[in-house]
Amino acid sequence: MIYLNLVNELICVLCWGITIRLILIRHLNSEIKVARFNMVAFVLMLVNLAVVLPIFAFLLKNLPSQSVSWQSALIVTTIDVLSTFNLILFCVFSCCTRLRKCPATVQDFLVLGAAVKHGQVPPVLATRLDKAINCWKTHQSAKIIVSGGIVQNAKTSEAEVMAAYLIAHGIPARKIICETQALNTWQNLAFASQLIKSQETVVVTSDFHVLRARTYARKMGLNWSFVSSKTPWRYCPLTFIRDYLGIIRDHWWVFCGSTLLLLLVELILK
Rank of each mutant, 00 (worst) to 15 (best):
I2C: 11
L4C: 08
L6K: 15
N8E: 10
E9L: 13
V13I: 11
V13H: 06
V13C: 07
C15K: 03
W16F: 10
G17I: 01
R21K: 15
I23T: 01
I23R: 01
L24K: 06
N29C: 09
E31W: 14
E31N: 15
E31Q: 15
K33A: 15
V34Q: 11
R36Y: 13
R36K: 15
N38T: 10
L46R: 12
A50F: 12
L63F: 06
V68S: 14
S69H: 06
V76M: 07
V76K: 04
T77G: 08
T78A: 08
T78K: 08
V81H: 04
F85L: 13
N86I: 11
L87Y: 08
I88A: 14
L89Q: 07
V92H: 09
S94G: 05
C96I: 14
P103S: 10
Q107T: 07
G113E: 00
A114P: 00
A115F: 05
H118W: 14
P123Q: 14
T127S: 07
L129V: 03
L129G: 01
I133F: 01
N134G: 11
W136C: 02
K137W: 06
T138I: 12
K143P: 05
S147T: 02
N153D: 12
K155I: 05
S157R: 06
E158A: 02
M162D: 02
A164G: 03
I171E: 03
P172F: 06
A173E: 12
E179R: 08
E179D: 10
T180S: 10
N184V: 06
W186V: 11
Q187T: 09
N188P: 09
L189N: 00
S193C: 07
S198F: 01
T201G: 04
V204G: 01
L211Q: 05
R212V: 03
R218W: 15
R218E: 14
M220Q: 13
M220K: 11
M220F: 12
G221Q: 05
W224N: 02
F226S: 06
V227C: 09
S229L: 03
W233A: 15
Y235A: 05
L238D: 01
T239K: 13
I241Q: 02
D243E: 09
D243M: 00
D243C: 01
D243F: 00
Y244W: 06
L245W: 08
W252T: 13
W253R: 13
V254T: 08
F255L: 09
L262Q: 08
L264M: 12
E266Y: 15
I268N: 12
I268Q: 10
K270M: 13
